[in-house]
Computed example of a mutant assay.
Amino acid sequence: MVMEPQLFVADGRLWRNDGVTARSFDPWALAWQDQTALPADVAPVAAEDAVAMLAAGGGMRRLPVAVIGPREPVGDQEAIARALGAAIAGLGLVLLTGAKGGVMAAASRGAAESGGLVLGLVPDEDWRMANPYVTVPLATGIGPVRNALIARACPVLVAVGGGYGTLSEIAYGLHFDKLVLTLADAPVVDGAIICADVTDARARIARRMLALDAAL
């Protein structure tokens, strides 16, 4: 599990104290700003709760989180993808997928059933080719080239299982300096982080969206 830094909330704003410098989080710029001191009345908050709070407030820039994986999942990959989609929606974040079946459809279903927004980059020219859980289908007509677009568009990619297609998306993500997480026997690639479970992945997603381990 990821160890969270000490975060605080006051008057709907997120704060942190690095020992010397107090900082507040700008949810639109997704960046920390130096301040003279913490407010007098602050309450501790976990990173995941902070992301959900900021997203619910409507003032947070909604960069998407991608879930990638095979069209023919095996074992428990489909169930894991569905739980992951629900976890992303629970954070108030937008899910981005390749809009087709298998892991993509399962993650989309999990997010949609949890009230989340699902963005799908459809490789076909017809938006109707998207799975039925995609809220915003974007017909690109560019086929597998859309893998690079997904990796470029998201600060975080989570792979659930997968073969060569998923491997290409992982490689693109790492090439673009994105956080790449893997679950359920996804391809092992240096630089990608193998997560213990969906809870672990959720915590890492929250940290990245709050720019706690790298700038967005």
Rank of each mutant, 00 (worst) to 15 (best):
M1V: 14
M1F: 10
L7H: 05
V9N: 08
R13P: 03
L14Q: 05
N17C: 14
R23K: 15
S24D: 06
D26A: 10
A29Y: 02
A31W: 02
W32M: 13
P44V: 10
A46F: 04
D49I: 08
A56Q: 15
M60H: 06
P64C: 05
P64D: 01
E78V: 05
A79G: 10
I80Q: 13
A87S: 14
A87W: 04
G102Y: 10
V103P: 00
M104N: 11
M104T: 08
A105F: 01
S108I: 12
R109F: 02
R109L: 06
G110N: 11
E113V: 08
G116K: 04
G116R: 02
V118G: 04
L119G: 00
V122P: 00
V122L: 03
W127R: 15
M129A: 13
A139D: 03
G141R: 06
G143L: 11
L149R: 10
L149Y: 15
A151D: 01
P155N: 00
G162S: 11
L167Q: 14
L167A: 14
A171C: 13
Y172P: 02
F176S: 01
F176N: 01
K178Y: 02
K178P: 06
L183I: 08
A186Q: 05
P187W: 05
V188F: 07
D190Q: 14
A192G: 05
A196N: 11
A203L: 13
R207N: 04
R208H: 09
R208W: 04
M209K: 00
L210Q: 04
D213S: 06
L216N: 13
